[in-house]
Design a protein around this nucleic acid. Sequence first.
DNA 1: ATGTTATATTTGCGCTAGCAAGTAACTTGG
DNA 2: CCAAGTTACTTGCTAGCGCAAATATAACAT
Lengths: 173, 173
Amino acid sequence: MSAMLAGEVATRAGYFLGAEGVACLSAEQALAFTGLLETSRRLTRELEGELEAKHGLSFSALGLLGRLAVAPRGTLRLTILAQDMGLSLSRVSRVVDGLEERELLERQQCPADARAINACLTARGATLVRQAQATHGAGVRRHFFEKLDKEQVRMLAATFTSLLDGAQPSCVA
Amino acid sequence: MSAMLAGEVATRAGYFLGAEGVACLSAEQALAFTGLLETSRRLTRELEGELEAKHGLSFSALGLLGRLAVAPRGTLRLTILAQDMGLSLSRVSRVVDGLEERELLERQQCPADARAINACLTARGATLVRQAQATHGAGVRRHFFEKLDKEQVRMLAATFTSLLDGAQPSCVA
DNA sequence: ATGTTATATTTGCGCTAGCAAGTAACTTGG
DNA sequence: CCAAGTTACTTGCTAGCGCAAATATAACAT
């Protein structure tokens, strides 16, 4: 299997193994790294496709609505959303544009600070987010957890927790 | 720690835990899933940023050049590149546009098939890809492997290998 | 030979994403 | 009280990505 493994690695990790070679990373390391990125890519593609098809929501849109759904009064300021979600404020502003268009949320002037805008979930939005969360949850189970045993899940959770520990937010702006 | 863990999960996985709740996924499952996506996002952002800053290459561009670098005669057809890289052909065509502009590769008519185009690495491209691979390899070690022990790497490699096993290509088009 | 179907690539469009610049409003030091 | 600096948001721009349509060539069946 070592030969087949090496072949796999050469294919999937070709972009950082130079002509000089394989000494750069071990086969296992290459698999761990490229596997992580590739798994994330496929999972995202698959799940976001379902979400888009069934509810017309991107991942970010669902994340935003989901955060509103658990916030007091269904309301959060855009800045808070951006920080929470690790997105730029400009992106959040435009996601909100789209959701407001569809009347899933409303922009409201913040009474305490005239600069600030509250995104506020509508009844329509609250209904949709519940449905979409159900779709998404089912998709996650189907595409991810059904293929993993308990031990693997435990280990992944522990590994990612430690990796993300020194967590500066992923978006600077 | 269970309380803090639950808090973490509520924050990071808020988008699929509805008002009704936490019953949907276990805390560990939520961490494994969101951790995967978040880790991938940060890693990509960090590494691609370095690559862009030092060599003006995106991840895809490096992948493409890297594949040419190990191909016979530094040459591959666009279709092959697209399949290998899990990108759409249209995307590959445009990445090639950019790299051709910078004279890191050339488009050549395939002698055997007048429809096909070969992307062919130039000397400049071959030099750059080696440098960029070095940068990238160092970045991967620094941002990823330095934070993991041997056992974790082994486990990640095994898990992702089995997850990606039934691997239909991630890009349909 | 020739029409049909399949393959290879390019181009137009729409989406997500961030950064930079612009505007409005809050805060603070003098 | 007001000028300088900070914060909140919006808007214009760029880049990556895929899909769908357009074009050109190949392969195949009649």
